[in-house]
Design a protein around this nucleic acid. Structure first.
Lengths: 211, 211
DNA sequence: AGCGTAGGCGTAGGGCGTACGCTGTCAAGT
DNA sequence: ACTTGACAGCGTACGCCCTACGCCTACGCT
């Protein structure tokens, strides 16, 4: 009986993402999204609970493009790395939304499915009980931190230049590290850091004596 | 000759932190800080470049309480863990500022000194060249991610409850992990995840064959 | 005592989110 | 074919936010 709806939530999500990609996260506002769609500001409130809801929508919209199926059979390290890389690539395609991801992580069905898949891979690798949970959380923490590091202060960016310019007397190690860091690509850094974690997991799976 | 200044930047930082701790990060505004000090809004601009500057000030104010001296001699794993724990405790005392830390990390002298100390510990442990830089970045990434995980979705929080309530058919591993996770304290989770990373570093220091 | 500097602040303009209530439209029921 | 009423869309308005600009005045120095 009522008048039919003219928008959909995914449509709103897409418009919001367009705004964020084009004008930056700080430009994300109800007004901007409404203008992007060609609708009045208040019309959005029929589809969305408010600003927070739109932010969650953007995160899920970015994530929804990601493959969450189990990676092909092979060594478990490669399978874990493949899953991790999918997140890095998915999020890296929309750097402006990175600050939103930690907050809305829980509300994204895609990320829940990803976690489910990761737990399956870890289970196949022989991780059980506590160790499996810790492994998931450890990998998740690394991903979140590393992605933020990469986009908020990459090794080959202005921050590193500033570090290389520190007074050598007071910061001898930092100065040296700064010059060295410039030669490391973001991807290499990410991958080698992940390898550290995988090494750690490996020692546990093979029979670490603690943890 | 001129009229003397009546405020100091640290004073502004302290007032801003008071506001954030009491009313939350979203309540941080020029007006709120000015009112906290007992000064008009615009008076703040004599001491601060604007909103961004205040946020950086808050981060550094929180960090400045942290000890950045080298930890006592001992096994390098313990020394690294001690440094890491200092950050967790320092930041954990003011959870509301956590979202700010990744962005303003570079501008904090205290964090630069902390990094310098960490590089020194890693050097003492035998890490040289690339490996030392990668180790620092890996540990930093883990800290950032783990702290956000802890405060934005702890293992024993509502997020985990929601996970445990997922349909078991579709999310068998998550359901199991959710119930198990509730028994793991935030500190244990943090520590065991860090141990994974330290294990990985260990295998490298002892003579890993790759990386 | 007088002066020049610069600190403190008032005003105002352009953003923002969103509560509230009106209007117009469409589909169902007669 | 016409009435009807539920609800999508929107206009208005309020109360926040940041901050550019310029005035006034308290102060330390001469």
């Amino acid at each position: 009986m009522p008048r039919p709806r003219s928008l959909t939530r995914p449509q709103v999500a897409a418009a919001a993402l367009t705004v964020v990609d084009r004008d930056g996260l700080s430009a994300l506002s109800m007004r901007a999204v409404a203008k992007e769609i060609g609708v009045s500001t208040m019309a959005l409130y029929r589809y969305v609970d408010g600003r927070d809801d739109i932010e969650g929508l953007v995160v899920e919209h970015v994530m929804s493009g990601m493959d969450t199926s189990p990676p092909p059979d092979g060594p478990w390290r490669d399978r874990v790395a493949a899953l991790v890389e999918r997140i890095r690539l998915t999020v890296g395609a929309h750097p402006e939304v990175i600050p939103l991801t930690p907050v809305y992580r829980h509300r994204s069905p895609t990320l829940l499915r990803w976690s489910e898949t990761m737990l399956g891979v870890l289970a196949d690798a022989g991780f059980g009980g506590d160790a499996r949970v810790i492994a998931l959380r450890g990998v998740t923490a690394y991903i979140i931190g590393a992605i933020q590091l990469e986009h908020l202060g990459p090794l080959s960016g202005p921050g590193t230049d500033a570090i290389a310019a520190l007074p050598q007397e007071e910061f001898p190690h930092m100065s040296a590290a700064g010059s060295m860091a410039r030669a490391i690509s973001a991807h290499e850094e990410f991958r080698r850091g992940l390898d550290l974690l995988l090494n750690g997991l490996d020692s546990r799976a093979v029979g670490g004596d603690e943890l």
